[in-house]
Amino acid sequence: MLTRPASFLVLAGTRHVFSTITFSQAFLYYLGVDERPISSKGYALSPDDELMIRVKNGDLDKLAILYERYNRALFGFFFKVTLNSQASEDLVQTVFFKIIKYRNQYRAEEGSFVTWMFRIAHNANIDHYHSLERSRNEVRIDETDVRSDEDPDDDFLKKERSRRIKEALGLLTGEQREVLVLSRYQGLTYEEIAEILRCRVGTVKARVFRATEKLRRVYRQLEER
């Protein structure tokens, strides 16, 4: 049994023999995203799905539980996509507002709650970028100071790295940041990401690869500066 990096190298190495295997495919295999459950369709309902069904049936208090579970994850997602904490807070608010408003449209049999929630988040993102375009504002990167109790030297390095990765992310398009962050979100399969973005699985994979590659190039340029 080969370890994952070893399998990657084997696959990447054989791409000259088997032209069907590309570097990106080998990379995605390495990420192991394809090994996650294919889809929530046909699976038993998750506790989140059951909570959402109760919200749909009128028990709105159950939404507070879902909020407690997902507000940080959503905030993190929006922060990495918009790089702005105030906008992220507003977008989290928008997502939960839309969950309440469109609760009757939730169909547990068509996908998990998380997929549905991220689809709403994706649409909120699109609206956010449209409004930015209308007001002709650039993406404003937050210089939020994050407190830490760790060693000051370690803290400095971490902060520096975090600042640079944030800067690099800021040079990607909103779409690239979104697909990259979604692909890093635990529990989402490529099929589910394709459902969220309303595109084909192949397209999602290609976008993830392109976004990672661009991030690498941009980050390197920032380092060399």
Partner: peptide, 10 residues
């Protein structure tokens, strides 16, 4: 680094 990127508290 993207995973570990510091995200402020809401």
């Amino acid at each position: 680094a993207v995973d570990e990127m510091e995200v402020p508290e809401p």
